[in-house]
Simulated scan of single mutants.
Amino acid sequence: MTEAVEATRRTPGTPCWASLMVHSLGNTEEFYTDLFGWEYEPGPEQLGKYVRAMLDGQEVAGIGEMPPDRHLPVAWTTYIATDDADATAESIRSCGGTVAVGPLDAGIAGRVAICSDPLGAVFGLWQADTHLGTGMQGAPGTPVWHELVTQDTSTVGKFYEHVFGHEALAHPTASADFDYLTLLLQGRPVAAVHGVGRSLPHDRGPHWMTYFEVEDTDAAAAKVVRLGGRVVQPPREGLSGRLATVADPEGAVFTLVRSRR
Rank of each mutant, 00 (worst) to 15 (best):
V51I: 13
D179P: 02
T245P: 01
Q186R: 15
T14H: 00
H171F: 08
G135A: 12
A85D: 08
S199Q: 11
P189V: 05
P235M: 06
S175E: 08
T88N: 02
W145D: 08
E237K: 14
S259A: 15
V246Y: 08
Y79M: 14
T255Y: 07
P15V: 10
G97P: 07
I80K: 00
A100T: 11
D177N: 14
Y180M: 09
D129K: 09
D179R: 08
F212I: 12
A219N: 11
R111N: 07
H202A: 15
A221C: 14
T33N: 01
G110M: 10
A176I: 12
H71K: 12
H146T: 14
G62N: 06
Y79V: 01
I63W: 00
E237G: 11
F178G: 15
L200C: 08
G187F: 12
A174V: 13
M54K: 08
G133W: 03
Q46K: 15
K158E: 14
Q186G: 15
S175K: 05
M54A: 05
T11L: 13
V246D: 02
A244E: 02
G141L: 04
T82D: 04
G135S: 11
P201A: 11
A247F: 04
G228T: 11
R70T: 14
T217V: 06
P206Q: 05
E30R: 09
D129N: 11
G57T: 14
L183G: 02
R230T: 14
M21T: 05
E3D: 15
V101K: 15
M1T: 08
V225I: 14
S199L: 15
T255W: 01
F212D: 08
E30P: 00
V74K: 05
G138I: 03
V149K: 03
R198H: 15
V5C: 01
I92R: 03
L169R: 04
A87N: 12
R52F: 07
F159K: 07
F254Q: 07
A121S: 08
F164T: 00
A176H: 14
M66N: 13
A244P: 07
D218S: 10
L200T: 03
A174H: 09
R242Y: 03
I92H: 03
R9D: 00
V224E: 07
M1A: 01
L169Y: 07
G110C: 09
Y50G: 10
T78Y: 02
H194K: 03
E65W: 03
A18F: 03
E65D: 12
R93P: 02
E213V: 04
Y180A: 06
M21E: 10
E147S: 13
G165R: 03
H166W: 15
V112E: 13
G120Q: 09
T153D: 06
R204W: 00
C95P: 07
A176D: 15
F212K: 04
G141I: 02
A81S: 11
V246E: 05
R70W: 12
R204C: 09
P143G: 06
A18E: 06
T88K: 08
Q151R: 15
R204H: 13
H207T: 11
D34V: 09
A128Q: 11
